[in-house]
Amino acid sequence: MNKQYLLDVVIPCYCEEETIPHTVPELINFLNTCIKSSEFGMQSFRLILVDDGSKDRTWSIIKDFTEKLPVKGIKLSRNYGHQSAMLAGLTIADADVVLTIDADLQDDISTIGEMLKAYQEGVDLALGVRSSRGNDSVIKKSTAIGYYKLMRAMGVNIIEDHADFRLMSRRSLDVLLAHQEVNLFLRGVIPSIGFPTKIIHYERQDREFGETKYTLRKMLGLAINGITSFSVVPLRFVAFTGAAFSFAAFVGVFWVIIVRVFFYGDVVPGWASIALPILFLGGVQLFSLGIVGEYIGKIYLEVKKRPRFVIEATTND
């Protein structure tokens, strides 16, 4: 017999006034179809739309939806970022099963049926993974591949081509919410929870409405946050680099002595080339300090224990 359960769907929204009027009805129609099917065991569902400090009509549209549809709206006091907005929705979710999906519906909603079946089979985490990156530009595709390789090389347990399209059981969500980090990298934390997990491949769709708000700056910030939240390899790299250049400098001392003793007449006093290694070593030092500073900055944020988000308003269910 199928398990009976309630479903919450968390959808972060940032300036999505063109998108959510299409997204919400499409999702609701699909989930209503799932309720009618006995194979899923879903009793009811609710969409949790999180307005991440939008500057357009997103919040007013969300409020309109809550008056006639199974939708709950959450308005954050400012733009906290995609991951924090998703976490805000997850803290509000109280259903047996929680699904997270982006507002643009580039994630194929038909895959939700497979995720629900996986839950019936005893899976706690059903992770949507893109089958290919055929629609991405060459630059985006190559940088994504390089990033995942770098993360794995640093020992981070991350699922390649898995973003934020996933299903979580109640117990896995409770474990996630027990994490108290300010800089919570969901794409790395969730796969590392350790409960029964299933990878579900799907074809990512083209965006039909609106424009992406995920700029290059935001992607780089997420990448840096992922690396520094899960790995100390960059700090070890700094230590090994310092040791390597110290050894090179030690060898250089002998080279200077040899040149001074045996080739003094052929050497121009005050080598201009000395400036080059000085500049190079200075650059390495600044780069190393930058890496160390990134970790110190994270310690600074964690120690202050400031809220990861502030909810300004909510709507009634």
Rank of each mutant, 00 (worst) to 15 (best):
300 Y>F: 15
100 T>F: 07
94 D>A: 15
163 A>N: 06
273 S>V: 15
3 K>G: 04
157 N>R: 07
130 R>G: 01
52 D>K: 03
180 Q>I: 14
252 G>S: 14
109 I>A: 10
124 D>E: 08
62 I>S: 00
66 T>V: 02
128 G>E: 00
185 F>G: 03
287 F>T: 06
285 Q>R: 09
217 R>N: 11
142 S>P: 10
312 E>Y: 12
157 N>Y: 04
175 V>G: 06
29 N>M: 07
133 R>S: 10
166 R>C: 14
120 Q>I: 06
215 T>N: 03
277 P>R: 12
34 C>G: 08
194 G>Q: 05
207 R>I: 10
174 D>Y: 15
169 S>T: 10
104 D>Q: 05
12 P>H: 01
29 N>L: 09
37 S>C: 14
28 I>C: 06
62 I>G: 00
228 T>P: 07
223 A>I: 05
275 A>K: 13
291 I>C: 14
126 A>C: 01
178 A>I: 05
287 F>V: 03
306 R>T: 11
283 G>Q: 15
158 I>G: 03
154 M>N: 09
184 L>T: 02
174 D>R: 15
35 I>F: 13
266 D>Q: 14
238 V>D: 06
168 M>D: 01
85 A>P: 09
164 D>N: 08
172 S>T: 07
9 V>I: 13
48 I>G: 03
288 S>C: 13
196 P>L: 04
61 I>F: 01
14 Y>K: 09
125 L>V: 12
255 W>C: 12
92 I>F: 13
162 H>N: 08
46 R>T: 04
49 L>S: 00
278 I>Y: 07
40 F>L: 11
56 D>M: 02
103 A>M: 00
80 Y>H: 01
256 V>K: 10
226 G>Q: 00
85 A>W: 10
206 D>C: 09
139 I>E: 13
81 G>W: 03
297 G>I: 03
